[in-house]
Design a protein around this nucleic acid. Structure first.
Lengths: 113, 113
DNA sequence: GCCTCATTTAACCTTCATGTTAAACAACGC
DNA sequence: GCGTTGTTTAACATGAAGGTTAAATGAGGC
């Protein structure tokens, strides 16, 4: 699964977006993150795992709490992709060929793992 | 289902991102869109339906083809959300920087009175 | 009207995502 | 050591996503 797919999948869930919004304001423990939500602890824990695997957050152990914080890279990549689309659309199509070529390559790699 | 969820869900699929990339270069018929992919026609049709319901594309009838084109609104919204997160994040970071700076200053004043 | 091409809908299958509860694990305070 | 608190893992139910083939629909051309 490529990075963009992982990023957009992670962002597709409202709970996870809310978690990201919370962490954008600063790091927080799992308990603090969980508090505003109705869903169970394990459900939150799974969301955090998804976010971590997507490289959108990182976790560290601090005393007996796990502290989560936001990472910027993948958000930046996702934004760059959207930007690229909007640029293609408005500016011109020079780089489209390269992009489609790269995607074909990705697809081939996906088909023959 | 809110707009952001719909948008990010739609973008979470590589095939749909490729379709968007294609349409960023200009409108295209369903057949043209389908050509680069291995998957069946109905599968493409479903992807297009998802994209249309997410307001990422629109379809019009032209002779006996359905012509698809990109819409910009929802992409813009998604980008704005990411932007906002990054802004919060960098503000938080700035606050942290300011705090650390203040502490360094305090320390210096303590050490060298 | 009827044949053909382009696309969609229907029916179905399989896999994955998300939620739940119960149990396990880890770190601290007594 | 033992109970308490914070968090994760296990096992399971359920609904949604994405693929397939076969049949239906829609718009032209003859």
């Amino acid at each position: 699964m490529d990075a963009l797919t992982q990023t957009f999948s992670a962002l597709a869930d409202p709970t996870r977006r809310a978690i990201i919004a919370r962490l954008a304001a600063g790091e927080a423990t799992v308990g603090e993150i969980a508090k505003p939500f109705q869903i169970s602890g394990p459900a939150i824990s799974r969301h955090l795992k998804v976010l971590e695997e997507a490289w959108l957050i990182e976790r560290k152990v601090q005393a007996r709490w796990r502290v989560c914080s936001l990472r910027r890279e993948r958000l930046t990549e996702a934004q760059a992709w959207i930007d690229e689309m909007r640029e293609f659309w408005s500016k011109g199509f020079d780089r489209l060929e390269a992009l489609l070529e790269a995607q074909r390559k990705d697809d081939n790699e996906k088909e023959t793992p």
